[in-house]
């Protein structure tokens, strides 16, 4: 179990880095969905008493929300907006990859200096959560497209969730559900806004001009 959780955590960091270097919107959505699914499975492998109702519920909720529902909303949004596939980031892909790698290093150094709870099965959890938070923030500020900003926010939230996992057994699960619900509502509202952006800009897009041709 321990090795599985370490493998999953490493994979989550890898996915964040991949997101930083990826230019395809649909690709980004697929990756963030995969990351959400990994996050869903993770609680079952981390704590000593893995399979009890609360952990299962949390895992299922996370898996469905972050792995399936939210990516669906995002896919719907980009289909409605009909945005071009390529992105024009403020920070280029290669520099953001390098920055991302540096952030991973920084978070390991930082986590090394902070006291870590003893009950935790894997010491990777806290540095990787900090790295994911920082990479998500990097994506939010360095990208222009609304959809990529939302994806950056999801990565940021994933990192916070990872940190929450370190303490999930002691905090009442109402808070965990609150976290899930809020992520959902945030993206839901953002989806509506994206939809509005689509409508507002449809009227001024050049697509309408081609309709008069035939």
């Amino acid at each position: 179990m321990e090795q599985l959780s370490q493998l999953l955590l490493a994979f989550i960091v890898f996915l964040s880095l991949y997101l930083l270097g990826s230019s395809s919107l649909t690709g980004c959505i697929k990756i963030v969905a995969l990351q959400g699914m990994c996050l869903g499975v993770l609680p079952l492998t981390i704590h000593a008493e893995g399979f009890h109702p609360r952990a299962l519920l949390l895992a299922a909720g996370m898996f469905v929300l972050k792995g399936i529902v939210i990516p669906r909303i995002l896919k719907y949004a980009i289909r409605e907006v009909k945005i071009r596939r390529e992105l024009e980031p403020i920070v280029g892909y290669a520099p953001s990859l390098l920055l991302g790698a540096a952030l991973v290093g920084v978070s390991f150094v930082l986590a090394e200096r902070l006291p870590v709870p003893a009950g935790l099965r894997t010491s990777l959890l806290i540095p990787i959560s900090l790295a994911t938070v920082m990479m998500g923030m990097l994506m939010m500020i360095s990208r222009i497209k609304a959809v990529t900003q939302v994806i950056g926010y999801l990565v940021f939230e994933n990192g916070i969730y990872l940190f929450g996992l370190a303490i999930s057994y002691e905090v009442p699960w109402l808070i965990e559900m609150g976290v899930l619900l809020d992520v959902f509502v945030a993206v839901f509202v953002m989806g509506i806004v994206i939809d509005h952006i689509a409508r507002a800009f449809d009227s001024i897009s050049t697509e309408k001009m081609t309709r008069l041709n035939d």
């Binding site: 938070v133 923030m137 926010y153 940021f156 939230e157 916070i160 940190f163 929450g164 976290v179 809020d182």
Partner: peptide, 8 residues
């Protein structure tokens, strides 16, 4: 973003 940082 603010609310996320506050959660952290």
């Amino acid at each position: 973003l603010g609310i996320g940082l506050a959660l952290l």
